[in-house]
Design a protein around this nucleic acid. Sequence first.
DNA 1: CGTGTAAGGAATTCTGACACG
DNA 2: CGTGTAAGGAATTCTGACACG
Lengths: 81, 81
Amino acid sequence: MSRKVMGIGMVRELTGLTERQIRYYEDRQLVFPDRTSGGARKFSFEDVERLKEIHRKLRDGFHTFELRKTIMADHAHSIDT
Amino acid sequence: MSRKVMGIGMVRELTGLTERQIRYYEDRQLVFPDRTSGGARKFSFEDVERLKEIHRKLRDGFHTFELRKTIMADHAHSIDT
DNA sequence: CGTGTAAGGAATTCTGACACG
DNA sequence: CGTGTAAGGAATTCTGACACG
């Protein structure tokens, strides 16, 4: 499911992350939520999985700028899936 | 996808229905969204399909109380799917 | 660097009601 | 019956900033 339909609150519940963390990962260019006309972020189930993966990598000692390559590769792959 | 994750605004976009119609169908017991602690409705992709189906049936002349049986049957079926 | 938090504002959603037919 | 709308309120989300380390 790559359809971006859920708000940050639901993503928070699904990932266990804080809104701060989610927004920061977006700021670091690791996830790319859509936006409603009002500016609210909309995420997909894939984004949820990706966010969990990001957090795991960070826990393992990686830095956001290092994840960019790995994550982007995942992204490029998921595009033609 | 039976996970109830999206707000009524997204459902409005995905179904083309108005919030009024969506809330009314819930009032008529044709869809059963979850609620956030704050009271906001949360729908699943299945709910989106169901809502479209409901609207089609209404367009064809059925009434909400008649749909209840049909729809409920669909619901009972989707539970063990 | 990655995350917490208080601040003020804007967008989202909620309910109950009146309306029409 | 099914749907529109204006009304007031409550919950959600947003941004920019200060903080810590």
